[in-house]
Computed example of a mutant assay.
Amino acid sequence: MCNLSQGAIEKGIQKGYGQGREEERIVSVRNLMQNLHMTVEDAMKALNIPQEDHDRIKNALAN
């Protein structure tokens, strides 16, 4: 396989991994909110989610 193809495959794998990780964070936040009656902010803080990701997760939960 050529280097260009290998690079494209690796980039796709990383993108998929990142999307899966983001989805898992959203599920975790939602579970804390429902099961422990936490606010979205408290749930994200409990999971140590970086501040720069908060808006994106809030938007995903709103949809």
Score class of each variant (00 low, 15 high):
A62P: 00
I49V: 11
N48G: 12
P50Y: 02
V29A: 00
R30M: 11
R25M: 11
L47D: 02
A62E: 10
Q51V: 13
V40R: 00
R56E: 05
V29K: 02
K45V: 13
E41D: 13
Q19I: 07
M38W: 12
N63S: 08
L61R: 06
K11Q: 13
S28G: 00
N3R: 03
K58I: 00
L47F: 05
K45L: 11
H37G: 11
A46Y: 08
L47H: 01
K11V: 04
N3A: 00
M1R: 12
G7T: 07
E41H: 04
D42A: 15
E24D: 09
A60H: 09
K45H: 12
K45N: 15
V29G: 02
T39H: 02
N48D: 14
V27R: 06
E41R: 01
Y17L: 13
Q51C: 09
E22A: 12
A8T: 07
E52D: 14
Q19Y: 01
C2W: 05
V27C: 06
E23N: 14
M38I: 06
R56F: 04
I49P: 02
H54K: 01
N48L: 12
N3Q: 02
V40P: 04
E52A: 09
D42F: 09
Q14G: 01
M33D: 03
S5P: 01
E52M: 09
R56S: 09
D53K: 12
D42E: 15
N59C: 06
I13V: 10
